[in-house]
């Protein structure tokens, strides 16, 4: 198996909503099927926006951010047209989606 720090660092995206949903589903063993897409069911687990996406992100520069970040904290980084933005995955755990604009481009960073 992989050593733990590496595991945390690159651990994945798509699993998170699943983790949040686990508790809800445990209380309700048969989740509602919203529909079937390409042969696979889509389940409704939580109401829309129950996990609040970030709509108006605020930023710090790298030096100021050292005060809120650990050196080994996992981040999602994106660079567009010379502009770089980083998002802490620990912070994204509670939001999953950041609606942002980087290098003039409207993007969504998701975890």
């Amino acid at each position: 198996m992989m050593p733990n720090p590496f595991n945390r660092r690159v651990a994945l995206a798509t699993a998170l909503l699943v983790a949040v949903a686990s508790a809800a589903v445990a209380e309700r063993p048969e989740p509602e099927v919203h529909g079937t897409f390409d042969g696979d069911p889509m389940y409704t687990v939580l109401p829309v926006d129950a996990i609040p996406a970030i709509r108006a992100p605020e930023f710090l520069n790298g030096e100021a951010a050292d005060g809120q970040m650990s050196p080994d904290e996992p981040v999602l980084g994106v660079e567009i047209a010379g502009e770089s933005h980083a998002y802490s995955l620990w912070q994204l755990d509670s939001h999953e989606i950041v609606n942002d604009t980087v290098g003039g481009r409207a993007i969504a960073a998701t975890w």
Partner: peptide
Amino acid sequence: GVHTTWAEWKAGHPGTLVLK
């Protein structure tokens, strides 16, 4: 986009902004 650590990202992108 890339997944990495804060220290490594900052070293490679000194002008980066960070979600507050």
